[in-house]
Design a protein around this nucleic acid. Structure first.
Lengths: 231, 231
DNA sequence: ATCCCCATATTGGTCGACCAATATATCCGA
DNA sequence: TCGGATATATTGGTCGACCAATATGGGGAT
């Protein structure tokens, strides 16, 4: 029953399509910071969309700092080229870099969780582990795995760290993974993430920040190895 | 010549004002996930703005995942309550939590920089340090300090880590700091950040990831202590 | 030749009418 | 009485005309 499962590219809303078309236009036109884009009424013709839709895309890019607009002047590429949407970032980030970012942020978050977690933030972590071990399918397992990791970010009691985790997670989810071929319908009983999750939880419960940090690094190191194979 | 310098609340654009008004409306109305907001034509009256402006704010919140909209159905609070704009986050995050988030992310970023920095990413770091030591005003110093920290994020050669750093930095900048009273116009020659910056750079140059991590923690620990005083 | 003022053109922003999707009410037939 | 079809109301989305801010060009005075 082993089958390849290929995650489909997410279906894009009208706005997202408009944003992508505009981003492609800017990229293909090789605009530099400070350059002026064509006027809206020209641009909507060139991109084959209505002015309302174009304005939505322009609005989005302006909010992200990619462009700035001024009545009577025009629309310009902003100076800071690092700006951009998370979805644009998802298209640029390689799986390796995404994994390195996880290896950087999540152990630090786990350390903070060990210091700050309250009792009512620890209980859900245990529940996630129990459920992931009982999962009947990989989908179920992955949902609980996700909840476990986010539960740790919640346990930091720091909304900024949670926000950064969520941003990282959003990029992770948007990257279309071609998943490895699986020989079973569900994780085997000796799936190493099970013991690794428990080790992380124990470190958090023990308030051992350094161990929590190390256990999360170990766990994500295994995930990385599984994804990219031997070094 | 010592004077208190209070950073002013940033001037908000029309769109930002509209977003804030809408966010306040949602917050004060105690809407729960799944709740339906009043129709646009009602809402614009209640908020005292045109429909176009309201739609811009709604568009922004929808992009951030705070709400979802559907023709003929209405506008609803999204399930995931963790979503929100960075500017909204800036208003919620305490300086202590922001500092904890820096202490979590920046040492990890510095570790990655020690591993991945290329020669042409290290040179600008040295230049920032030289310039910060020569700074004639606190403003100049802070500009170079900012550039140093971002230079490290650039040195990771990981656009996702850079993006996360930029998000963190944006929140930091948006928090209106009441700066400490300063006895001098510029940093003293024995300002401890100077030697700390050099120690960080040396660790990066030496490719010593653990030392880089530790030196950045030390540096930010000093920053934290300076901001919040003794423990 | 240069500068200033005014008229016109151009650009992004707003408005009200209308459109497309959905909810709700009403009517009719079994 | 109930269920299905239809009409009407409601909701967010789009369009074209117009508005507000800015750029540009031309003419007249110095």
């Amino acid at each position: 029953m082993g089958m390849n499962r290929v995650l489909e590219q997410p279906i894009l809303s009208g706005r997202e399509q408009a944003i992508e078309a505009l981003e492609a236009f800017i990229r293909d036109g090789q605009y530099a910071p400070g350059d002026r884009l064509p006027p809206e009424r020209e641009l909507m013709v060139q991109l084959g969309m209505g002015r309302t839709q174009l304005r939505r895309a322009l609005e989005a890019l302006e909010m992200e700092g990619v462009i700035w607009r001024h009545v009577g002047k025009g629309t310009f590429i902003a100076k800071d080229s690092a700006a951009g949407s998370l979805s644009a970032l998802s298209r640029r980030v390689s799986p390796v870099h995404m994994m390195r970012a996880r290896l950087s942020l999540e152990p630090a978050i786990t350390r903070e969780a060990a210091i700050h977690a309250s009792h009512d933030r620890i209980i859900p972590l245990r529940i996630c582990i129990d459920r992931s071990e009982d999962a009947a399918t990989w989908d179920e397992y992955e949902a609980q795995d996700d909840a476990f990791h986010r539960g740790i970010a919640l346990a930091t009691q720091n909304e900024l760290l949670l926000a950064l985790f969520d941003q990282l997670n959003q990029v992770r989810r948007a990257i279309a993974w071609k998943t490895v071929e699986r020989a079973t319908d569900r994780p085997p009983h000796d799936h190493n993430s099970f013991v690794q999750h428990r080790a992380i939880l124990e470190a958090i419960e023990a308030r051992d920040a350094d161990r929590a940090h190390a256990e999360m690094r170990t766990h994500l190191g295994s995930v990385e190895k599984r994804l990219f194979g031997g070094f």
